[in-house]
């Protein structure tokens, strides 16, 4: 009996003592934090993808609450609507941004861009890029080991084993920009997202001369400039033997698509212009079928 009482007593006293210590320590190290940070963090998607430029959603929430001007802050994952509601909650003005989507700009499939050597090292694009151009003769094309797929936190990218190229699922893509950073060849670009996932872009990054491009890949941009000539909106520029369609100027008129001799211009979720019968059977079918 005596033992029992003594045990209870000792443990009781010890418990009270520790509780007191804990209380004072908690008081001493308490950090005053704006409770709105918690609320804002809950409104953010919680993907911690880093697409906003901060280490995670918490850091972003902290910046949104503490900074006066939040026009430079934008969560690409949440999108404009959520940003507006967060701004409304904080009594600040939200940045106005159009929805974007990641675009992979290489059309060099296994068939169109033949392998000229066999890579047998670590299956990682960055490793390949440390010492040579890759298995094809094109120094600009997709390496195809999926560093971007690994970097994507939303499952929006997948490697098509038939073509050897990475494809973007625009419905899943949040334009966080992780793939843009991950690709050692700089193939990804965040472009304006059209309704119904429509898109038109130059699926090539090769700055080589036309003859060199043609030798390495049948789908590359040869910098002929036909597309730029036909564009009525000055949306297409040719720089370093490479055409670029400015998404802000492009009106999806699709005239350039029919002009491209190599099929480097890609059209997604749209029918090409049916103008002349002889161009109607260009690779358009396989683009749409995808």
């Amino acid at each position: 009996m005596n033992t029992l009482v003594l045990t209870v007593l000792t443990l009781g006293v010890l418990g009270i003592l520790l509780a007191v210590i804990l209380y004072f320590v908690a008081q001493k190290f308490h950090v005053e934090e704006d409770p709105r940070i918690d609320d804002v963090e809950k409104m953010l998607p919680g993907a911690n993808c880093g697409g906003c430029g901060f280490a995670g959603c918490r850091a972003m929430a902290d910046a949104l609450v503490t900074r006066d001007n939040i026009s430079s802050l934008f969560c690409p994952v949440a999108g404009g609507e959520t940003m507006k509601s967060i701004a409304g909650f904080l009594g600040k003005t939200a940045p106005d941004k159009e929805p974007m989507v990641a675009t992979m700009r290489c059309g060099g499939t296994c068939q169109k861009r033949p392998k000229v050597n066999h890579y047998d090292g670590t299956l990682n694009c960055a490793v390949v890029n440390t010492f040579y151009v890759g298995e094809s003769a094109c120094a600009f094309g997709c390496i195809g080991y999926g560093d971007c797929v690994d970097a994507c936190k939303f499952g929006a990218l997948h490697l098509n084993t038939e073509t050897g190229l990475v494809e973007v699922d625009p419905d899943k893509c949040t334009a966080c920009g992780a793939c843009v950073k991950a690709c050692p060849k700089g193939l990804f670009e965040l472009r304006k997202k059209w309704p119904k996932n429509r898109a038109i872009y130059v699926a090539c990054r090769s700055k080589n001369r036309g003859a060199v491009v043609m030798k390495a890949c049948k789908a590359g941009c040869i910098g002929c400039g036909k597309c730029a000539k036909v564009c009525a909106f000055d949306a297409i520029t040719i720089d370093n033997n490479l055409a670029y369609i400015d998404p802000d100027k492009c009106k999806l008129c699709r005239k350039c698509y029919n002009e491209c001799p190599t099929g480097a211009i890609r059209l997604e979720n749209m029918e090409p212009l049916a103008k002349e019968p002889k161009v109607a059977n260009t690779p358009a079918s396989d683009v749409v079928a995808k």
Partner: peptide, 9 residues
């Protein structure tokens, strides 16, 4: 002949 490539070693 098939040329192999990999980083060193």
């Amino acid at each position: 002949t098939r040329l192999f490539a990999a980083p060193s070693p």
